[in-house]
Structure formats: C-alpha cells, structure tokens
Amino acid sequence: MHLDETFRIKVGLAEMLKGGVIMDVTNAEQAAIAEKAGAAAVMALERVPADIRKEGGVARMAPISKIREIMQTVSIPVMAKARIGHFMEARILESLKVDYIDESEVLTPADEEHHIDKRAFKVPFVCGARNLGEALRRIGEGAAMIRTKGEAGSGNIVEAVRHMRTIQKEMKQLTVLGREELMAEAKKHQAPYELVEYVAEHGKLPVPNFSAGGIATPADAALVMQLGAEAVFVGSGIFKSSDPEARAKAIVKAATYFNDPAKLLEASEELGLAMPGLDVSKLAESELLQTRGW
C-alpha cells in the first residue's frame, strides 16, 4: 500500500465526507440549495446525467466560470468531473483548486484504454467501479475514493445495488482464502496483488467506498448505505425531482438515519414526485454509462 503522506491527506477528505450526501449541481443557485439542505459536498458538472442521456453529444468538464461561481458560493468542498483519461482537464481543475476530481463515466471518455495517472496529482480523485477488480485498478492508479457506478441518470437503483453487492461479496470471498490463493485472485480480478492482499486481510477497500448512480429517494439512499456504502452521491435525483429542496434535505437525513425506519418515514413524508425513472434492462448497450471505464 502506498500510504504516503499525500495519499493520507487525499483519503482524509474522503473520510470527512462519510455519512454525507454529495450532490450534483450545475450552477451557483443549485449549489446554494444543496448546501442549505445539508450536502457534505457538491459536484460541479455541465449537465446532470439525465440531461446528458437525453441530449446526447459529447459531455465534457463543466465550464470554468460555472465551477468558479460554485466555489465562491458555498463553503463545503467542491468536486468537479473530468473525462476518463483526460489528464489535461484534470490538470486545469487542479489549477482551479477544486477539492476533488471525479474521473467519471458520466462524461464522454477521452481515452478508451487508459485512465488518468492519479498519483501524479496533488488533488484527490474519486472513480467509479462496478466490481472489485475495477475498484482496485482505480486505487492502483491513485484514486483516494471509490464510488460504485450504478447507472447515472436512470433514477433506478437496481444497478447501484448490483455493483455494491458485487464488490461486498467479492471482498468477503477474499477474506476466507489462503495466502497461496491470492495471486490467482489478483489475476482473475485483474487487480494489483498488494491491493488484493490488503482486501483479503481487512475485508474492505483501503479507501472509502461510496455509492452513486440511480439514487432518487431517501429509501434508495438508506438501501445502499445498508449494503455497505459509506456515503452517497446523488446526481439527477435532486434537481430532476419536483421538489429539489425538500428532497435534498430528506436524502441528507436518510444518509444519517439509514438504520432507523421511523426517521426514514419522517424523511419520506410529504415529498413530491421523484425524478422519472428508466428501466435499465431496456436500455441498449450503447446507452449504458456504466460500461465506460477499463
């Protein structure tokens, strides 16, 4: 494990976000609403995933003026998305001093073979993963936080559940194996051996593991937290609903009281309509965002 000082500071901020909600915002006004509702951080992006899905085209890093405006508006950490493999978008975001970069499958990939060498940066990165191998490859590249991918912009929790369950199960499996079995596992997961060894020993990732992609209700947030998510990212779920402010607040409450059904009931009362959802199984392979990343 490369637990040097820089990496500890990167993971440190991820630790601070635990039990919280990171909300996608596209402008200062939305960022202010998110902060007021109790968001632990905001994610600046050009369009929320549901709109990227609908409008198509190339999705890139958000306009700098928008990100700056968001950074000036809120006192909580501001993250921003860069395209997979686009290390120059990442360099620009680092110069802008955003607090975290999400190398995200929600944007159109810039490189279909390589991810960003995240160890070369001082700013921390979060990356998406669908399974343990993908998570460990990203950590190997220097990611200081993992979020399961789910299916962004779908309003459907099924993929987030699948990915969280997959990672948890694969981690548990490693803990019962003998040491001599770990190299074959590393080969199978296509993951760095030292990281496979770490998971086998600790039963968890060496960095915080959050959930994203499809969270639309307080119940959704509580569900992924029950399955092992340490915090949640909500993308389209808030600002594509009929009641962003109330919903944002309700999801914040659900992330804290995920183990308290009475509080979850309180959080779910008097909410309007959630965002419209998609049946992920009916989406064409080419429409899936989760398959981006290698």
Binding site: G20, I76, V252
Partner: peptide, 8 residues
C-alpha cells in the same frame, strides 16, 4: 466532517 451538514 462538514460543520454545515451537522448544524442542519
């Protein structure tokens, strides 16, 4: 953590 989140 985030003081604003805790305060809310």
């Amino acid at each position: 953590g985030e003081s604003t989140t805790m305060l809310k």
